[in-house]
């Protein structure tokens, strides 16, 4: 067993923070969606690493559920983004500002 669990944790922290950075900087709704995917993946890396650490499958099964939920979330998200595009001809989050943000 070569790789320490903490290495994986640092990897996941890096991916999580990258996703957070993307959310803070990018206005494009699709980019936002992709950044959220990165963050969910970071959570999954953690879960798998801890699953290995404890020799306990709970983490792996939960990671599977997270994947399924991410897929469902993307489906709904893309539906909303499509409708947004039809209404505003843009997917810029700030562009859709009928109401104050």
């Amino acid at each position: 067993m070569a790789v320490d669990t903490s290495y994986y944790l640092i990897l996941s922290a890096a991916v999580f923070c990258t996703g957070l950075f993307g959310i803070l900087t990018r206005r494009n709704a699709l980019l936002f969606l992709m950044s959220v995917e990165l963050m969910l993946n970071a959570a999954n890396i953690n879960l798998v690493a801890f699953s290995q650490y404890y020799g306990n499958l709970t983490g792996q099964v939960f990671a599977l559920f997270t994947m399924a939920l991410a897929a469902a979330e993307v489906a709904v998200g893309i539906g909303i983004i499509l409708v947004l595009y039809r209404n505003f001809e843009d997917v810029d989050v700030a562009e859709a500002a009928t109401m104050r943000w």
Partner: peptide, 10 residues
Amino acid sequence: APLGDPVGFD
């Protein structure tokens, strides 16, 4: 965090 060696599934 005081993480030791992983138990794993071997």
